[in-house]
Amino acid sequence: MQAGYWIRSKPIYGGLQWQHKAQAHVIIASGEGGRAVLRLLQQQLPPQAIKVLYLPEAQADHSHALRHMLQDVLGLDLASALSRHDTAAALWLALDEVLTASRMGTRIYAAGDEAFLWQVAAQAALHGVLNADIMREQAASLARAVYCVHCKTISHHVNTNIATCSGCQRQLLVRDHFSRRLGAYMGLMIDAEEPGNVPDILEIYP
């Protein structure tokens, strides 16, 4: 961590809020992101069409609550309002179809862990959606994806300030410098100058 200054490449996430000026709403969420979507659905509903694309995770599956909320509480047509997917590949395929049919004015929301948020951005970019066009909420985990600048491997779900690269096994300092294109923080070998001199490894991204 760079204590003395703020690195402006590090994204700061807020909570999801409806963008009331819109033609339609597309919400993409995974795992614990489902809870963020439920929170959003508790806000006053906009009049335009709403579509939720959801990828449950083993430890975090909010599909039932989403179904109840959308269908039973809000009275929406479930077939058009919710599409639940078992694999990431299926989710991206469905998102591609939805965005292909979408018009300008379709508001896009994403909720999930940080890596997921930027996968959504990469998929949407194929349709000319800019990073700034998407509203994001980082749900639950602060885990980081870490790009090893030496071997170019991305290690996922890193909870510590220093992590072992899953590609080259080097000990990487997880910097605050973030690439939206890669959806990952920069990892730099920490003991290059003095091999073996690795500071305490601390869990700071639970």
């Binding site: 760079q2 003395g4 200054y5 703020w6 690195i7 402006r8 490449s9 590090k10 790009y147 600048v149 170019k152 910097r175 605050d176 410098h177 973030f178 690439s179 939206r180 294109r181 890669l182 920069m186």
Partner: peptide, 21 residues
């Protein structure tokens, strides 16, 4: 690192420079 920084905006790219922000 170009491979890491490519595609970044001005402020993201200069993020790690201390004392200037």
């Amino acid at each position: 690192s170009l491979a890491f920084d490519i595609g970044m905006s001005w402020h993201e790219w200069h993020g790690p420079v201390p004392q200037v922000d």
